[in-house]
Every structure is written in structure tokens, then in C-alpha cells.
Write a protein that binds this DNA or RNA. Structure first.
Length: 286
DNA sequence: ACGGATTCCTGATGGC
DNA sequence: TGCCATCAGGAATCCG
């Protein structure tokens, strides 16, 4: 599942393959992959030259020479890869033919993802893009503390909420909470400023390490060259339900939090548990 | 208004 | 062996 480190890795591996090339044509075995439509996408993208490849949250951004941009939502199983004229792309939903015989392929078995083409200045008006929270890497402690708020929402739900912070998904939420010693179901109102600072530090450490390892490959994720990442070998929480905690040996538990399976150590992650008292009193405001 | 639950989609997996 | 239920999850949307 591509989250921030995976999308960052795709951007870095895709850039040298496509930057400087012109988009010659657009084809789509599954036209629903393209927004606003196959014809609309082609009108915005064809004839444009790719000038850079970047990322915002989990959104892959392919910048065009007219200030337009292609935004790619990979969701769960989306893949963006390149393939030359002699290679057959594996079940692509959409293919961009590029100059020099290169092709950019978008495949996505579960079909949750999509590619959006935008004209100059249009993406800033896209509600999804405009409402994204700040990037977690480089985010200041004071702002992070404030963005979590004092509500009763569970901390994991907040980490997964792209309006709060952009780029974190189920894997890195579990890994960060483990390293910070906070239960995934802890309400925000019970997490002290000190704990919040520790959580941000854990998030930044985990994301940076995952980027350095080219992301995590559970089953679907591959970079633009088709290569897997390696950070799955460093998981301490995700996917370790029923196994002994790597820190204390206690059996890791799995619970449903924020609609996601969440793995945590009941011993190491007690932070926020004391919040039941702090949050129980209803906000008596007149 | 806020926060939880549901929905979309298909392949992998486990139980019988 | 084969079938069927279950699970995976990002984000929009629905619901209490």
C-alpha cells in the first residue's frame, strides 16, 4: 500500500525515466482510471513535456511544461512503472506513450486509484489537494501538537486523516505509535504535549528510514523500475499480531481501530490509556 | 459538529 | 480438491 515513503520512492525512480520526455499519446484499457475523462485527460496531457516528478502526501505529481500537472492516486494497489517498446505492461489501466519509445504505465488490480490531469493552476482548486494537511517531514513540534487537538478522536484515526497530516497510512501509523509507546485507540485529549513530541519524532524517524529503504513491499508495491522496497524487514508492529513484541516479548495484539486492523504491544504501548479520566468529563461549556 | 461505520474493488488466504 | 467466507485498506460518504 503506497504511503509517503513508497510514493517518494516512485517519484525518485520515475523521474530519471520520464523527465524531459514529451507525452505523445494516451490510451486506457480502463478509461475510468483517468480523470476528468479519457478525452479530457488526453487534451490536457498530450503534447506536453514532463518537467519534474514529485509528491504531496501520498499523491504522485508529474509536472508538465505548461504549469499543468498529472496527479496520481495509487490508493491500495496502484503501480506506476515505465516500460520500453519491447516490454508488455502487466494489465495496465492506462498508458502514456512518451518520446524516445518510453511508456508510463498505470496498473491497479483493485481499481481504487486514478490519474488526474490538470491544466495550469487547476490542481490548487481540487478540494482533495487543497485540504491536505502539512507534510510530516519537516513539520514543527508545536504545529503537530496543535493539529492533534483535544478531541476524543483516537490518535490512530487522526494519523490516518490526511487533513491532519498528509502521507501516513496504516503501516506507518502502527510503526510510529509502537515506537512512541502510544496505544492506537488512545484519545487525543489524553496525549500529553511530551507524548505528542515523541510521536512526531517517531513518525519522522520511521518515514525517513523507510524512504532510505525504498519503501515497504507487502505484496503489491513496486517502484517505477518494478523493484520492491526493503522496509518491511524492519517492521516492529505492522503484521506482527500474535507474535512476541520485539522490545518486551509480550504477545502483540490486533484490534480494530478507525476501521483498520491495528497491531500494538499492550505492555509497551500504554501511553494515552490514562486518558479515560481526562476525557470522560463532557465539555461543560455554556 | 464530531466521530464512527460503511462502501468501493479484487486477489490472497483459510477453513471445512 | 474445491468452494465460500473473510480480509486487506484510502478516502468519500453516510449515519447516529
Amino acid at each position: 500500500m503506497p504511503e509517503l515513503p513508497e510514493v517518494e520512492t516512485i517519484a525518485r525512480t520515475l523521474a530519471p525515466e520520464v523527465v524531459g520526455r514529451e507525452i505523445l499519446g494516451v490510451s486506457a484499457p480502463d478509461p475510468s482510471a483517468l480523470q476528468p475523462s479519457l478525452a479530457g485527460f488526453a487534451a490536457l496531457a498530450a503534447g506536453r513535456r514532463i518537467v519534474s516528478v514529485g509528491r504531496r502526501g501520498k499523491l504522485l505529481l508529474i509536472a508538465l511544461d505548461n504549469q499543468g500537472v498529472i496527479g496520481v492516486h495509487l490508493r491500495m494497489t496502484g503501480r506506476v512503472t515505465t516500460c520500453g517498446p519491447d516490454q508488455e505492461p502487466d494489465r495496465p489501466r492506462a498508458v502514456l506513450a512518451l518520446s524516445g519509445g518510453q511508456r508510463l504505465c498505470f496498473a491497479d488490480v483493485r481499481r481504487f486509484g486514478s490519474m488526474h490531469a490538470f491544466g495550469p493552476g487547476e490542481i490548487e482548486a481540487w478540494p482533495f489537494f487543497a485540504s491536505l494537511g502539512p507534510e510530516p517531514l519537516g513539520l514543527g513540534a508545536a504545529e503537530f501538537r496543535a493539529r492533534l487537538g483535544q478531541g476524543r478522536a483516537r490518535i490512530k484515526a487522526l494519523l490516518l486523516d490526511q487533513h491532519v497530516v498528509a502521507g501516513i497510512g496504516n503501516i506507518y501509523a502502527d510503526e510510529s505509535l509502537f515506537r512512541a509507546g502510544i496505544r492506537p485507540d488512545a484519545p487525543a485529549c489524553g496525549i500529553s504535549p511530551r507524548k505528542r513530541d515523541g510521536l512526531l519524532a517517531a513518525i519522522q524517524t520511521v518515514l525517513a528510514q523507510a524512504i532510505a529503504e525504498n519503501g515497504s513491499s507487502i505484496r503489491d508495491y513496486r517502484d517505477a523500475n518494478g523493484d520492491a522496497g526493503a522496509f518491511q524487514n524492519h517492521f516492529k508492529a505492522y503484521g506482527r499480531g500474535g507474535k512476541p513484541c520485539l522490545a518486551c516479548g509480550e504477545t502483540m495484539r490486533v484490534a480494530r481501530v478507525a476501521g483498520r486492523s491495528s497491531t500494538f504491544c499492550p505492555h509497551c504501548q500504554r501511553g494515552g490509556g490514562e486518558a479515560a479520566v481526562l476525557c470522560s468529563a463532557p465539555p461543560h461549556k455554556s
